[in-house]
Design a protein around this nucleic acid. Structure first.
Lengths: 349, 349
DNA sequence: ATGAAAGCGCTAACAT
DNA sequence: ATGTTAGCGCTTTCAT
């Protein structure tokens, strides 16, 4: 055991290691990194000294001279939203396996916080940034990054001219509508996501397109705005049931929510009103979050490959970082798939 | 607009700013940091130059000389576990508000990954580390940190001799048992957490103590081991119902799960068997995760102040970091509170 | 194969 | 009030 806590503030440096091994600092550096010519004997001595002193290379100092860091930043709009959990996990896995540190920033969907986070990232000289979840306002900030040689990959923001990992939201919504129609639904309502959010708009678009394609009726009152939270979904049912059936629009026999969180709120609202799901109204979501399996009835949904999205984004980023600027950066579309559960199941059609 | 992308690799430095402002580098530094005497005129000139050049101070270089960073590491066992979501949010908020960057590490409950993460943190010279969720094995690694002047705060690991933020798990389990008993339960089963996990063991202990205190019967077969996941809870009911009612132990009329995730799995298992909750068997959890509100029936639980725990831990850490080593570091116990919902509600007693 | 020297971008004495 | 100097811990030519 080494003595500790004697001179608390100063960690052991490469200088200490060199001294103990009886070599120069530069030789120690070369020996430690294994990236240069060293005699086997000194290499061993240096390594021993390092171990004995519990030497931990100072990444700060290294970065200053090499002008590269082993850190990447992840920006997301709300770490509390299940959509980001598997994504974050996937990102973290790939990154930590490659020896990179992951800096996390939660923007709370505020463009100001996003900008601030990006500034901190720049200050930290992160090697790359992953942007997950669209900020609701300006896209200018991300674009600024292109200037200073920081690699950027986005998840689900396949505009903005940046490399991306994404799913086809239009298609995903279409898959849900198709399934609903096949189980007998004729009057499909839609709980939309927050305005200005790309994924939300695309799903809405996909819903409308699918209705048209299948010749299903569409009605403005069947579309109600939500905010991607369960509470939002809960409010949405109330609004939906209140305004339908009176005017031109009859009550829907199915509800598609733009994400699972809202679908779960919808389920709750329906249950409170004693409306049986799926017998009277079928419900489906988009997302594939774990909770969907445990609500009642279990939620049919279009699952997004969230972990894979995180892994893919991190992988692309690492290639860009390590392959240098010339490296190709093919954006990628990942597949979604329908997950049929009871909320659209038995008892219908 | 400034020109960009001309010399891609080099960001503007303080030297550029100084030159443009027509002052020395040190004057620029002083002016920028506002921590020294400068004439109003030069201060303005420097700031203008910085803005014009879109200057972003290099935190790396600054850290190297000041020997302090504005980064803290958060280690948790599984970012996918809802327990950590609000905690992470709380931590992130406090930290980013103070201008600190948050480095996240997910250990997957592997001691090896935890150790590796801590090494990366040390390499990054983080100013502090928050340890959330016990690693299942050795506590040696965290202790090593005390050597090199890195502030450490734990969440829910109030052993290990480190400052902590925690809840009284024994009491929390007791609250649940008390409530269950008050609603008429006499035979309370327990779905325990993973072996070796502090919180899990304490809740088990609290469960047993509460039974004894209230003179409620206890039976070894009423305790079944889970793993803190919904699937684990689901398996646990199966095991419980299979082995009870045959031997010495009658079927339970209530099930307390050591966390909400498992309680949700229990609910699902019960539903599949057509056992009405809470009429025949009441169910409660510990945690207070958002999902509990949306399962059927909504889950009664003992809520832990997760966001506050994250905020408190981050706050303590910042005090330790900025107040220097002398600063007092009072560990804190936060209160839990019972959240009564339908899974133990109407239809009972 | 090894060492001396320079320098990454910044801050912090110390002069002026 | 401003500039000069030194140096944080490391990597990297360049000599030897």
């Amino acid at each position: 055991m080494e003595r500790r806590g004697e001179q608390r503030t100063t960690m052991t440096t490469i200088k200490d290691v060199a001294k103990r091994a009886g070599v120069s600092v530069s030789t120690a550096s070369v020996a430690l990194s294994g990236r240069g010519p060293v005699s086997e004997a000194t290499r061993r001595r240096v390594l021993e000294a390092a171990k004995a002193l519990d030497y931990r290379p100072n990444a700060i100092a290294r970065s200053l001279v090499t002008r590269r860091t082993q850190t990447v930043g992840l920006v997301l709009s709300d770490i509390t939203d299940p959509y980001f959990h598997e994504i974050t996990k996937g990102v973290e896995h790939v990154l930590s396996a490659a020896g990179y540190a992951l800096i996390l920033a939660d923007t709370d969907r505020s463009a100001a916080k996003e900008r601030r986070s990006l500034e901190i990232f720049e200050g930290q000289r992160v090697a790359g940034i992953i942007l997950a979840g669209s900020g609701t306002e300006d896209e200018a900030a991300p674009l600024d990054l292109k200037g200073d040689g920081i690699a950027v990959v986005t998840i689900g923001r396949h505009h903005a001219g940046l490399p991306f990992v994404a799913v086809d939201n239009v298609k995903a919504a279409g898959q849900a509508v198709a399934h609903l129609a096949e189980t007998g639904a004729r009057r499909i309502a839609f709980v939309a996501g927050p305005e200005g959010l790309l994924a939300a708009e695309e799903r809405r678009e996909g819903y409308l397109a699918a209705l048209k394609e299948r010749g299903l009726p569409s009605c403005p009152e069947w579309i109600v705005r939500g905010d991607f939270t369960p509470q939002g979904g809960h409010r949405a049912v109330a609004e939906l049931l209140e305004r339908c059936g009176r005017g031109a629009c009859p009550e829907p026999d199915a509800i598609l929510a733009a994400n699972d969180q809202m679908a779960i709120g919808v389920l709750k609202g329906l249950k409170e009103r004693g409306i049986p799901v799926p017998e009277e109204i079928a419900v489906a979501g988009i997302g594939g979050i774990p909770t969907g399996e445990f609500v009642d009835p279990p939620l049919t949904t279009v699952a997004l490959p969230m972990k894979a999205m995180g892994e893919a984004a991190a992988g692309m980023l690492l290639e860009m970082i390590e392959g240098g600027r010339r490296k190709a950066r093919p954006s990628v579309w990942l597949e979604t798939h329908l997950l049929v559960r009871a909320s659209t199941g038995a008892g219908r059609a």
